[in-house]
Write a protein that binds this DNA or RNA. Structure first.
Lengths: 145, 145
DNA sequence: ATGATAAATTTAGCCTGCTAAATATCGGGA
DNA sequence: TCCCGATATTTAGCAGGCTAAATTTATCAT
């Protein structure tokens, strides 16, 4: 295989990854709207379903985004009644984020959407290839970290 | 392999794809800013490098996004001096988009950024696996379309 | 104890994206 | 010819995401 071929493959992978990710976001952003959620908010809630009462900085780390982004997302989710904020007793700088009952109730519906999405995404890809794909995804994830 | 294992693999793939795509966007959004560009604008310019003077609707199709998004991106890129808009002679509804010299000059630097990005992304993944990955990416892309 | 530094959050102001609705123009049929 | 539906773009307003800078509170060394 020539260098040119190699390059062409690499190009295609990056472009395809770009298209898949934006298409994925568009697709399930749309379906999340049926639950009164926007794309990205599901990941924040997911972290809270694992255990709430955490700080905004912890949410930043989990979402791998900047503090102002969390401030805004938290504000919106609070306005929509899915979470609430409470000042930490020991350290007045930190805000701790908790789920409301409505926020908790979203877990099952959101997980259903995720399942739908990944069934659509992986449809027709055999088991063995999915294992390979997982390995390659992990590899790329580590490369970017 | 049990159904539960299968499900776990699928979950991981979707999550990893999510993390890779947001990390990728963050990474190269940052490096594009050195060129006075924002993530996403490079794709619009790419279409123009293939041939400019096209309409905003054609840009929509290429970017797979909605008309208002193109209106905004075009406005910003015009203000920053990379493109200019010109009314179509035959049909007064359509705007045709052209590259300025500055816009044309971005091609090489942007392609360098892309190369850097894909080298980082695919580092350590052997040729054979990249071919498999390309196939799988294409498959997922078709599944979402 | 005080004063400087560090950490958590917010504010302001961008950008890509979206939807819903308005505007402008084109084209075909009665 | 005139009107009506289709097409291209824009406007308004919202969301996630970013950076730079401000604010509040803690902590640590002097």
């Amino acid at each position: 295989m020539t260098d040119t071929d190699t390059d062409a493959v690499d190009c295609e992978i990056r472009q395809s990854l770009d298209r898949v990710s934006s298409q994925m976001r568009r697709n399930y952003g749309e379906s999340l709207r049926e639950l009164n959620l926007y794309a990205g908010q599901d990941n924040l809630l997911y972290r809270l379903w694992l255990g709430d009462g955490i700080t905004q900085m912890q949410l930043c780390e989990h979402l791998k985004c900047e503090p102002p982004t969390v401030t805004n997302m938290v504000k919106t989710l609070e306005q929509n009644g899915f979470i609430y904020r409470k000042k930490d007793g020991a350290d007045a700088r930190v805000m701790r984020i908790f789920l409301t009952d409505e926020g908790r109730a979203l877990q099952q519906p959101v997980e259903d959407k995720w399942r739908e999405l990944r069934e659509k995404l992986l449809h027709g890809i055999p088991e063995a290839d999915r294992l390979v794909l997982r390995t390659l995804m992990r590899h790329m994830e580590n490369n970017l970290a």
